[in-house]
Design a protein around this nucleic acid. Structure first.
Length: 123
DNA sequence: GCATTGACGAAGG
DNA sequence: CCCTTCGCCAATG
């Protein structure tokens, strides 16, 4: 009986593994560390789709979860996505709050603060 | 349905 | 060394 489990065409039956995975990784970034879009994409197996990671972060704003998008920067450690926050300064403030140092919209000692998801997950 | 854009990145000139 | 182009894939116009 019943079985009216019919999903409408507009329903979000679609599984955005990619987006969801990006959120999961972002949430696993330890405090005081940062990662890059390419690193996450690489962990997902599609390092060429680093853009999609950024797009996923954009969707993160609408996500019920609190995604620490400020910990995700580009390969140069630059806060390229700061304009997408509530305020462009928000991203730097959040990073500084994590104990990081940001100068000229770039994470200081980024290389040392870099957190690789593949490495963290002991892949 | 095609064209443009986008929080990237690597490669080429 | 700086700028341009291409690839990736999804959302928006």
């Amino acid at each position: 009986m019943g079985k009216s489990k019919k999903l409408n065409s507009t329903s979000e039956e679609k599984k955005y593994t990619f987006f969801d995975d990006v959120f999961a990784v972002a949430l696993q970034i330890p405090k005081g560390r940062v990662t890059s879009y390419g690193a996450i994409a690489n962990y997902l197996g599609t390092k060429m789709s680093a853009r999609m990671v950024g797009w996923a972060m954009n969707a993160a704003h609408s996500s019920p979860l609190n995604i620490p998008a400020q910990r995700v920067v580009n390969r140069n450690g630059m806060l390229t996505g700061k304009h997408h926050f509530d305020t462009p300064e928000r991203m730097q403030e959040l990073l500084e709050k994590d104990g990081l140092e940001v100068k000229d919209d770039t994470v200081v000692d980024f290389k040392n603060k870099f957190w690789d998801p593949s490495k963290a997950l002991n892949l």
